[in-house]
Design a protein around this nucleic acid. Structure first.
Length: 274
DNA sequence: GTGGGATGGGCAA
DNA sequence: TGCCCCTCCCACA
């Protein structure tokens, strides 16, 4: 379930047991054998998360502390599994297994799992827009990217060079909470609306990191009234999201509709997001 | 057991 | 824009 929250949560979970450790690396599936061999017996110095990308900084033991960077992108199907030692046999196609004295980390199904140069790492970072989960990133960077195009805001929020870490679920939820029609041209958004999108994105992604999955219902956001708060118990009380693949709107009770934007269906309430 | 989706993204047309 | 890849998991036979 990888949007940005998954990536930041993975980094957060993995740091305590992996950073500072010398790892044994292998590729049970065989598709990353050369890479795993290069990482074997290297020391992990740090894990950086940015948007949907993870960077693992290693120092090789031999080769006089030469740095190596592992770049991981989970894509649609990728996932991590973590175990205590001794680990169970690899489940499914495990691309990379990292083993320390106490923990085992398995990576399966990633879109990207490769060793990269510093330049390549910089190139990836340069292509990314501001990440609401990274401190010091600002709404103004988002505003600058939205200001000069008539492309629909719903499509822009999926573009990782516009805002990094938002995927199809979060884009629908962000626009729903901001009450903005996903089809509106980006350049028509008012400065306050852009700031609000940023505040909502950060709050939702942070909640996702904390909980470990996407939950947007009942997240407290400054300046945003919680839709359906105080509504009688019953229909839809157990929902975790407001709009994404939902049958009806929790605010007005009308039907949730969807429109294809950025090549994927964007769910929204035509009445509340007019 | 099989088939179809899935919260991504790059590529050719 | 539509395809294809990656892998897992669920609904359905």
């Amino acid at each position: 379930m990888p949007e940005g929250h998954t990536i930041h949560r993975a980094a957060q979970d993995q740091r305590p047991s992996l950073v500072g450790e010398v790892v044994r690396a292998s590729s049970p599936q065989g598709r990353f054998e050369a890479g795993a061999k290069a990482l074997d017996q290297a020391r992990l110095d740090g894990i950086d998360a940015r948007g949907k990308h993870l960077f693992y900084r290693f120092t090789t033991r031999r080769g006089r502390g030469r740095p190596i960077v592992l770049h991981v992108h989970l894509g649609l199907a990728g996932r991590f599994r973590s175990f205590k030692v001794p680990p169970p046999p690899p489940r499914g196609a495990v691309r990379l297994r990292l083993v320390t004295s106490s923990r085992v980390l398995d990576l399966s199904g990633p879109l990207v799992c490769e060793l990269v140069s510093d330049e390549a790492r910089e190139a990836v970072l340069d292509r990314l827009g501001p990440d609401p989960l990274v401190p010091n990133q600002r709404a103004s960077a988002l505003a600058a990217r939205l200001g000069r195009t008539k492309i629909a805001i719903g499509a822009m929020l999926l573009d990782q060079s516009v805002i990094a870490g938002v995927g199809n679920v979060y884009r629908a939820e962000i626009l729903y909470l901001a009450r903005i029609d996903p089809r509106r041209p980006s350049s028509s958004l008012l400065p306050d609306e852009v700031r609000q999108l940023w505040v909502i994105a950060r709050a939702l992604l942070r909640a996702g990191v904390e909980v470990g999955r996407i939950v947007t219902v009942d997240v407290a956001i400054p300046g945003i009234e919680r839709p359906g708060a105080g509504a009688p118990a019953g229909r839809g009380r157990h929902r975790r999201v407001y709009a994404y693949k939902q049958p009806y709107c929790r605010r007005c009770g009308g039907l949730i509709d969807h429109v294809k934007l950025g090549g994927r269906p964007c769910y929204f309430c035509p009445r509340c997001q007019a």
